Simulated assay, not measured.
Amino acid sequence: MDKKRRNKESAKSTPVIHENKCVLHTISKLVNQQEHCGIYTKKFCFLPEIGDGNFEYNRFDGLFIGVFDVLLKNDFKIHGEQNIDAIELSYLIDGEQIIKIDGKSHDLIYEGQESYLVYISQVSGSIQYHKNKHYKEIKIRMHSDFIKKHKLDSEYGIHEKYAVEKLDRNFAKPLCSKTQEILAELLTDTRQGLLKRLFLESKALELLSLHLEVNKRAKPEIPITDNLIKKLYEVQYIINSDLTIQYSVHELARKVGLNDFVLKKEFKRVFNKTIFEYALGLRMIKAKKLLKHSKKPIYEISELVGYKNSTHFTAAFKKVEGTTPKKYRQSDIEVLENTKA
């Protein structure tokens, strides 16, 4: 009962918002909209239960530039599917996102002072945001009309080179000083009408040019491990990669360069479980699969899930599952025999 209640509480703490239900109307309310010199502008204010802040965008001639600025009060996740054919540039000035693309086995960790360039044609997945975080992002989308106008795909092969399915763990790049200057100009601009159109279009192209230049002269990628959220996901990866090893908190902290207290506190914040609870859950899932689908002896299964002593494994399994490994396996065999009969 305790385990079920914890799962329910965890689910409540991270509500899932489906983008196909018009995500902006789900998490915010429209406070202003206007059209001037062909620029269509909308401003939204986030709902109190989501956070304190707003989202504003300008759209014209296949170019979209949006600015998110909010202090989040609760965890939430946006799940959606997009079919748009567009170049997307994102500049995360502050905050963190956990991006999950359907079909990819690993999450993409995106943190403040980073950016990415991607070509989206058809993609589905989710983005998770954490509470008590200030989140500030400038997002630019260049749709097919804009791409054709500036011959972006034929000249640079962006459609192929930056396809969303090619994103890997090192997809994000740190913001350079020139990029930060341009972002500051976008955030403080007060132009109107035609001058605003020319300014936004020129800055969007300048940012794209900078990103392409950085990628062209970039050295082989070295994984970025300085940021906290990446270190937490590196710990998750270390645990997942070999369940035969039971790492102590101190060992994990030393591997990723954190102190023990910060690792324990932040791991619990991000994953809603302690490191022990997380690793134990994975071990029990693997143990049940091996008990159900293999004929390996229990002492061998205990070693495969990190227990050198099968007695310790049996005690841990019984505490979590309410029965011993032997009885769990036997009950499954009986169910199969009854089904056949």
Rank of each mutant, 00 (worst) to 15 (best):
A11E: 07
K12G: 00
S13W: 07
E19C: 08
N20H: 12
V23Y: 09
V23I: 10
H25K: 14
T26N: 12
I27N: 10
Q34F: 08
E35R: 10
C37F: 02
G38Y: 06
G38K: 01
L47G: 09
L47W: 03
E49W: 13
G51M: 04
G53Y: 07
R59H: 14
R59C: 13
D61N: 13
G62N: 00
G66I: 01
D69C: 03
L71Q: 11
L72W: 06
K77C: 14
G80K: 00
G80A: 00
Q82W: 15
Q82F: 15
N83Y: 13
I84M: 06
D85W: 02
D85F: 13
I87R: 07
L89F: 10
S90P: 06
L92C: 03
G95W: 04
I101G: 02
I101H: 02
D102I: 07
S105E: 15
D107H: 11
I109E: 03
Y110F: 15
Q113T: 04
E114N: 00
S115D: 05
L117G: 03
S121H: 09
S124A: 11
S124D: 07
G125Y: 01
H134E: 07
K136A: 00
K136L: 01
K139R: 12
I140K: 05
H143R: 11
H143L: 14
S144Y: 14
D145A: 13
I147A: 07
K148L: 08
K149I: 05
S154I: 01
S154F: 00
E155W: 01
I158H: 05
K161V: 12
Y162F: 15
A163L: 09
V164Q: 03
E165V: 13
D168L: 04
L175T: 00
C176T: 14
C176Y: 01
K178Q: 15
I182L: 15
E185V: 10
R191C: 04
Q192M: 14
L194I: 13
R197S: 12
L198C: 06
L198P: 04
L200H: 04
A204S: 15
E206Y: 06
S209V: 06
L212N: 06
L212M: 02
V214N: 14
N215R: 12
K216C: 05
K216A: 15
R217M: 00
A218Y: 02
A218C: 10
K219E: 14
E221L: 13
D226A: 12
L232I: 03
L232R: 02
Q236S: 09
Y237V: 10
N240M: 13
L243W: 07
L243A: 08
S248H: 02
V249P: 02
V249D: 15
K255S: 12
V256H: 06
K264Q: 12
K268I: 11
R269Q: 03
F271H: 08
N272H: 14
N272V: 09
T274L: 06
F276K: 12
F276V: 10
E277W: 04
R283F: 09
A287S: 06
K292L: 14
H293K: 07
S294A: 08
K295H: 13
K296L: 15
I298Q: 10
I298T: 11
I298F: 08
Y299A: 13
Y299K: 11
L304Q: 06
N309C: 01
H312D: 15
A315P: 03
A315H: 10
K319L: 05
V320S: 00
P325D: 02
K327I: 04
K327Y: 09
R329Y: 10
E334C: 06
E337H: 11
E337T: 12
K340W: 13
